[in-house]
Each structure stands twice: as C-alpha cells, then as structure tokens.
Design a protein around this nucleic acid. Structure first.
Lengths: 334, 334
DNA sequence: ACAAGATGCGCAAGCGCTTGCGCACGTCGA
DNA sequence: TCGACGTGCGCAAGCGCTTGCGCATCTTGT
C-alpha cells in the first residue's frame, strides 16, 4: 500500500518526472515508456498522493458543504444536488454535518483549511459571524439561509409561495390560521411567515401569534393535542415542512378530527411521501437539488475568478392535493 | 486570501517553525510570541494549507464514502451515521455519489487518491472488481453490500428478519405471496429474498417467482395495476423498501382494493413516514445510521493498524403496524 | 552529409508545512 | 563563580509530486 512515485520510477527504470508525465497529461513520452510506467504503477498499486499533487500545483479542487445533521430528506437532497454538479465540474466534495448544540467553529475551520470553497446550507448549521469569518479566507456561498453582505446566496422563492398558499386556504373559506415553524430572522421560514402574514392581512384576517415551534414531529403531535383540547381554535395549519404536517394530520385524525373538513393542513417541500398520505398533502415544491447544484456552480465560477450574481432565487410552486380542502388533485393552481 | 505561513512569520517577526508550533500543539513557545503569532495569523486571515500539512506528516485524515445517488432516505441516513462518527474520530469525510449508469471507476480512483480509507455502500455504486482494486491500495470496508474476501463488512441482519416478517404474514393467513425487489447476488435484498423463500417453504407454501422489479415507486404502481387486472393473484406483498410499499398501498387503494383486508403489504426500512400512512406500514427497522457509524469506526481502526472483525451484523426488528393485517400498533413482535 | 528542428527524457526547483536537532540564553544549585 | 539544565527559538531536511528548462538523440529537408 502507498507506493510512491519514486518506487514506480525505479521499477520502470525511469525518472519520476517521466512517471508523472506518463500517468497524466501524457505529453512527449514514447508509447513504450508509457506502457512500462503504467505496468509498474499497476504492479505496485500506485495511487498518486493527492496532497502532494495539490501542493505541487495540480488542481485537485474540492468543495466543502456544511449542513445541520437533522433528519428529513431536505438536507439530503441539497447535498445530493450539490455533489452531482460538483462532480460534473470536477470537484470533490467534503461533507460536514453540524449538530444543533455542537460548536461548529473548530470543525468548520478545519474544513475550510481543507477545501477551496464552501457552501453553508440552512441557518442552523453555522451562525453569520462564522460564515463571514470563513468567507474572508475562502470563496463561500450560502444556500437557503438568507443573504450575507458580499456573499452569493441561492434560495428558493418563499414569501410569494407562502402568500399564495395561504390565500388558497382563504379561498377555501378558512379564517383561523396557525403557522408552525421557528422564525429565525433571515431564514427561509421567516420569509414564508412573512408571506403568510401578508396574505392574511390582505384578506382582512387576524394574524395569529407566531407559535415558533421547532420543525419536528413532536411539535406536530403536540399541536394537534393542544388544538383538540382547545376545541379546534384553528381551521387551517400552515406547516414549515411536510414531516410536521404529516404528524399534525395523523394525530388530528387519531383524535377524531376530519382533515381537511374540520382543519386544513398544508406542508412545505413536497417530499415524496406527501402524495401517499390520506388526504394527499397540499404543499409547496421546492427545487431543492437545484439549489444545491446552483451553489456548486457558483463556487466553481468563483474559483475560476468569475463574478457571481449576489442573489439567485429559484421558483417554487404549489402542489394541490387534498389536505387543503381541494377535492382532487388539480393540475394547476386554482 | 490564502496567506502562507511565511507571511505570518514575517509579520510576527519570527520563523515559520515558530508559527507552526505556536498555532498547533504549542510546545515550548513563550506566551508573548504565541499571541503575536496568533494576531498576525488573524490579521492575514491565515488558514494553514491542508495539503501541505498532510504532506508534511501531520495527520489530517479523511475518509471517503461512495454510494449510489438514488432517492430516498436510506442512503442519506447511512451517510449521516458515517459522517457523525467520522467527525467524532477526527476524520473528515469526502462524499462521492455514483449514478446507476455512470462509470464509477475514474471517480472512485480519484477519490481513493484523496482519502485514507473508503467505505463502499450498497451494491449498486461500484462493482466488486472495483472495490477489490481499491482495497488493494487503501483500507476499505463495505456496508450493506455483501462481503468481499478479506474486507471488513458491516450489514444489517436481513435473512432472519425477512423470514420472521413472512412468517408473520403467514400467521395472518396469507398464502399467495409476492416479493418486490432486485435480487443482486450478495446484496441485502438477496438475503431478504432468501429469508422470504425459507419462511414460505417452511410453511409449505408456494414460492413465487422472483419479480426482480427495481425499487422505485413506478414498480409499485405498476404492480398494483397488474394485480388488479389479474384479479388479485397475491394476498401479501413483501416490498424491498417502504417507498415502494407506500406506492403499492396507495395505488391498490385507488383501485378500490382494501389494504390489508384484500392484500397485505409490508415494507422495509421503517422510514419516518411509514407510521403516517393509512394503514400504518408494517416494516422492518434497520439501524441504518448505526451501519454508517460502524463503518467509520472500522476504518478508523484499520488506519490505526488494528485488526477489524471481518463481518459485523447489526440486528433489525419488525415494526408491526396495520398494513400486515394487525389491528393496532403492537408494542412487541407477535 | 549537415544544420535545423522534433522528440524523449532527466535535473532540480519549489509547492506550504512539520519537526528533529542544535544553538544561545537564562536559571539554579553547590 | 561555574557547570548543568531548562527554555525559546531558528535551521534545514523532507513529505510526494509537477513542471520549466536543457541536453542528448533521432528525424527530416536540402
């Protein structure tokens, strides 16, 4: 294991420069030498040391991606989209998951030392000051986490979709709303909450206080129980993601509440299983993998010295199923 | 951006050795010098070049993980489990996703050059010969993909759980079975199919031919339609994962079939949404993140020169919900 | 047959860092 | 007062590789 270029050179009876050239962009090497070198490399299980290659200037670029290690498919899709595009662009990707309570600083710094550019995804993984610190030393983009001055950001349209979604529920005759999700300023969810309140205000409805519940299934279950205990104070629940919405729906049903008749529930993300719930979950589809891919592209451009637009917003769209009160799947927004 | 240790040394008025020592395991440096160096580093936004550090012998170990870039939460959990443990053990993790038709070889080789050890997850990402080739040059473990001679493998118990699951359905009075999933020799799914056939044989029931359908939702939908067209040739469907099972259930219901009365359907993986389906999906829970974590641990041990047991099998357990015919959730296996 | 160019290869510098060794001081015990 | 240590730091080697440059050797045109 771990043969070096010297051993390969020895075995092939050439110099290390020849080995290097033979194994790479192959300029000016005779065919016979090249074969000899290749064979020697093969016999020794030679694998060039990537650190040395990098140091010596050959571009083995790698990109880092940091995200919270929460459950759910959202972050996974982000990572997948990023990796796919990064691979196509010939970058390798280093993955860093950050727990909610862990101190991200040392880990993120180590990552930054290791990669040529980084993408910070979602608010929770690293705070703004950390991101700004890193951005001073490496090309950096943010994804779905609001904008920092001077940094390219990519995110999905949220405010308008949330307003549309809320308006749709208003059109179904709903009047007593609740919103489930933690509202970090600058986050995606905050933008959705803004759209939510705007639509309600425009409809002349009361804007409920922000519940500020975390986005997990326990919240959903708890909310359902609370609602039933309070004799259904709401007739429409806008959830921060589909997992929570699923939990709310399920638990309401268990407690004998009819969804959507008594309470409409909508989610966000359009996870794959949203369509298999009964009622089908009305939700907002986001181009999650697209966000990841775009982040990779921006990093690539940044590394190539190109300028990158500061803010990219990808479109989202409503997916009407039944949990909002629609009878059947509809092909297009009402 | 990208200040070097030389510039820091200049600015602090010391030699590069002092900078290196001051910023690291700080042996034998006066406090005043150390502060001066730190300040200089800070002002220059200095980040040590990881490639150089690696080359010079300081252990910045990184582990690679290669998996198919299929949808679903299974691989995401594997990756998360791996990353968490690897981080704890002070390894960074490089992620490589391989498409089903893409040629994995060059990408995997590049990855191998870049990391100190690799984990291959699931059969589809890289074939045995590739894995064997890489294993000759780097410590390697396989996860949920069967065993290769000489390589540590970790996987979840499959055969027995599949047999238990099948037997459970037999106890519910089911007699006409089908199995959904591609049966690559040596794969997890193959082991499950083996358990499935064993249980049927032991029960004196007919073993259906292997449908060998891919594990996606289209397969599920197609199967449902086919079954209805054929007047329900099966009364129990054992699916290779929960996503397929969800699709089968949904589509059967759409076609007016009662699940589980007319047809029982069970899945595998216990994805989070399995419990929110109606009927709740009976399935097999696997310690997926645990598999990933274990792989990271094994790699860590291998790099430390320790021996690692060749095969580790993690326990799985049945999760009884209603889609098998059970009336209500049960706390423990029947 | 000979200069001019093409071809094949080796030399050596250098990428940014870590670390063993040794030198110059300062401190202490006798 | 002097030798024996301890402390703080610099020197320089070396990690494994890439690549510009230059030197032979071979090919080609005339």
């Amino acid at each position: 294991m771990n043969a070096t270029i010297y051993e390969v050179a020895d075995r092939a009876g050439v110099s290390i420069s020849t080995v290097s050239r033979a194994l790479r962009h192959g300029g000016r090497i005779s065919e016979s030498t090249r074969t000899r070198v290749r064979e020697a490399a093969e016999e020794l299980n030679y694998l060039p040391n990537a650190a040395a290659q990098t140091l010596a200037g050959s571009a083995v670029r790698s990109l880092g991606i940091v995200l919270p290690h929460v459950q759910g498919t959202y972050y996974a899709q982000l990572a997948v989209g990023f990796e796919r595009r990064a691979s196509e662009l010939d970058h390798s990707v280093v993955l860093l998951l950050v727990g909610p309570d862990a101190d991200a600083r040392p880990a993120v710094r180590r990552l930054a030392a290791q990669v040529d550019g980084l993408a910070f995804m979602a608010k929770s993984a690293a705070d703004d000051s950390l991101v700004a610190e890193i951005a001073r030393r490496r090309p950096t983009v943010t994804v779905a986490r609001g904008q920092l001055p001077g940094l390219p950001a990519v995110q999905a349209e949220s405010e308008r979709a949330a307003a549309d979604l809320t308006r749709h529920l208003v059109e179904h005759g709903r009047t007593r709303f609740a919103f489930v999700g933690p509202i970090d300023p600058g986050s995606d969810i905050a933008a959705r909450y803004a759209g939510f309140t705007r639509a309600l205000t425009e409809a002349g409805l009361e804007v409920p206080p922000n519940t500020d519940l975390p986005l997990d299934e326990d919240s959903g279950r708890a909310l359902a129980h609370e609602m039933v205990a309070d004799h259904l104070p709401h007739d429409a629940i806008v959830c921060g993601n589909d997992e929570v919405a699923a939990a709310v729906v399920y638990e309401l049903q268990e407690l004998g509440v009819d969804v959507p008749r008594d309470v409409a529930v909508v989610g966000w993300d359009d996870i794959r299983l949203a369509r298999y719930l009964r009622p089908g979950l009305t939700t907002v589809a986001q181009p999650v993998a697209g966000l990841g891919a775009l982040a990779a592209e921006h990093l690539h451009a940044l590394l190539a010295g190109e300028d990158v637009v500061e803010m990219t917003v990808l479109p989202t769209y409503l997916v009407h199923r039944q949990s909002c009160g629609c009878d059947a799947p509809r092909p297009s927004p009402c």
